[in-house]
């Protein structure tokens, strides 16, 4: 009896907490709607959260194990591969993408200039990661990737994992801080294959 009451109490508390969470999410959606104005150069679709963004926001990146598993499975299913299915591209092309931080800035105050946009987006990897040891201006929000391929080898599984991690980091870690580069359309599958080669190829400066 006492046990049952305790269980009931726990359920009540949990559902109250969930309700409070949903309530807050609804308030935040209202807040966002009131704080960005549609108009020329403003892509309002960027403010619409998908399931994953919603869950990670509501749980402050700390979802329950069950929800985290569902999230990673859902994200894994989104991964697309290059048309030729070659996951190791050209590391020299990859280097340019790793260094490049340009792209996707919008609005009317300081949008990316259209002429520069033609060069495509960069991966902006150095913002968060050390990669080539010679580049000292590397951020530390993510782990160091220096020697990535040297440490891990270039086996088929490693190539596939690296490609998929770059394409959608949340296929492996729920609510990872890393942008879902492929899934969100920042880099194309072929470009992700180039970055994969840059990280893994023995010829790449990453592994020298």
């Amino acid at each position: 009896m006492r046990n049952r009451m305790m269980i009931a109490a726990v359920i009540a508390c949990t559902s109250l907490a969930v309700l409070a969470g949903e309530n807050m999410q609804a308030k935040i959606e209202k807040l966002v709607a009131a704080s960005f104005k549609p108009g020329e150069g403003q892509d309002m679709s960027r403010l619409v959260q998908d399931e994953t963004q919603k869950l990670c926001s509501a749980t402050r990146n700390n979802p329950k194990a069950k929800d985290a598993d569902a999230l990673t499975a859902r994200e894994k299913a989104t991964i697309k591969y290059p048309a030729d299915n070659k996951l190791m591209g050209d590391w020299k092309e990859g280097e340019k993408l790793v260094k490049g931080g340009f792209g996707m800035r919008i609005g009317t105050i300081e949008p990316d200039p259209p002429a520069k946009q033609k060069g495509g987006n960069g991966g902006n990897c150095y913002a968060c990661h050390a990669v080539d040891a010679k580049e000292v201006a590397a951020g530390n929000l993510g782990p160091s990737l220096t020697g990535y391929g040297k440490l891990r080898g270039q086996g088929e599984d490693m190539v596939k994992y690296t490609y998929e991690k770059l394409y959608n980091a949340q296929a492996f870690v729920a609510c990872s801080s890393m942008p879902r580069l492929g899934h969100n359309g920042i880099l194309k599958p072929e470009q992700i294959a180039h970055v994969t080669a840059y990280l893994l190829s023995p010829e790449s400066p990453v592994n020298k």
């Binding site: 403010l47 959260q49 963004q53 990670c56 926001s57 969100n184 359309g185």
Partner: peptide, 19 residues
């Protein structure tokens, strides 16, 4: 609201302020 929004992830980078 400010703290909740601080953790709100949106946009093509999946970022929140907390990132």
């Amino acid at each position: 609201l400010g703290e909740a929004y601080f953790w709100n992830r949106h946009g093509p980078m999946d970022f929140s302020c907390a990132t």
